[in-house]
Design a protein around this nucleic acid. Structure first.
Lengths: 197, 197
DNA sequence: TGTACATCAGTGAACGCGCGTTCACTGATGTAC
DNA sequence: TGTACATCAGTGAACGCGCGTTCACTGATGTAC
């Protein structure tokens, strides 16, 4: 049957959105194409009208995930009072909400380890998206010049990602919260408080 | 045929050792039982004379990995001059060798994200092994009392794990090295240099 | 000491299952006349 | 305005494949006598 004009594009976007969440929550092999499509009220055959392979979807979904995560972080910064941008970014990143919502959160904290196991060509494209993410956020970092801001970013963000990922591996939720708040305090002191005064 | 008396135990250990490396390098689903056994010169059928299921092997191998990684770290500390133990631990953890040797390295930096996706019962057992790892290492942390040392451990180690995992997701090896050495400098300043003087 | 038998780590064919992918088909709507 | 036809997003049966797991079997050596 003939479908409404915009339906193709809408379905395409819905698949990427659902995959982006699913890959972060369950990894690249956690959900089959059939299940992914079924969750959207579709059948698996139609998938190949939108993507050449699951790997192509993986790339699109991860890139989308990094864009969305970048949106959230820059939005948090821009909503903060002048001079408090980095504080807001750290508090958002190391928040209980981010701990809980893997599927909508930082891609690195969710699936960096399986990114490291992808074929080189996949890793390179994801690296481009990671660089774009960094380029949106390093301006909020302390430092006099671009090189210093980037250097600070590359210490702070991987560190925070490690905290989130380790907390998520733990089962004791009060220990998770303690870890988060201890890390929040540490990174705020190390990156923000020496600046704000 | 009848095999030498110790062979059963030796084979059992060899399987755990190979799995412990493989799971860190490729994740829990990266290698089949058949391939794992073939690499040891065995066939897949015999596997079930040693383990009830792949999940049982996963648990044993991860626990073994945490023990071995703990051995390496405490050995690095004990080989260091008096008062330089934590420095040695950080330099070992954030070394190019550790970056490269995923299979023999920190379990958290290798597979924490998939640990977070395991069934609760599996996660709980792995959490016990993680606690044991922490208990061997927190004595080297700065602080007057046990609670403070643990708190410091839970900031430092997840942070370093995040650095390693993020570097491993990158394809540019000079950027990886720069990230490692910047992080080394940062964590040494934050955890060691304020103490050593 | 010599012989018959039991043992059991390891073998490899076979199983059911879920996966990614393919493909002939559907049918409501847009378009050509 | 009315009719015939083309379009193409989505359907669902079918495919080959690799996986975890099972199980009847093997056969060199230990043990009982």
């Amino acid at each position: 049957m003939r479908y409404p004009v915009d339906q193709r594009a809408e379905t395409h976007e819905k698949i990427i959105g659902a995959a982006s969440r699913s890959f972060r929550e369950r990894g690249s092999e956690g959900k089959s194409i059939a299940t992914l499509m079924k969750d959207l009220g579709l059948t698996h055959g139609g998938f190949y009208k939108h993507f050449e392979s699951k790997e192509e979807l993986y790339l699109d979904a991860i890139q989308r995930g990094l864009e969305e995560a970048g949106d959230r972080m820059t939005a948090a910064a821009k909503a903060a009072p002048k001079g408090k941008e980095l504080r807001a970014v750290i508090e958002h990143y190391l928040s209980p909400a981010h701990l809980e919502h893997v599927g909508a959160g930082c891609v690195i904290a969710a699936i960096a380890q399986e990114i490291g196991r992808q074929p080189l060509s996949v890793r390179e494209k994801i690296n481009d998206a990671m660089r774009a993410y960094m380029n949106r956020l390093f301006p909020f970092m302390p430092g006099d010049n671009v090189a210093e801001k980037r250097r600070q970013f590359l210490i702070l963000f991987p560190g925070m990602a490690g905290v989130l990922m380790t907390a998520r591996a733990m089962t004791n939720s009060s220990a998770q919260k303690e870890m988060l708040s201890a890390a929040r305090k540490f990174y705020l002191e190390a990156f923000v408080e020496k600046i704000e005064k």
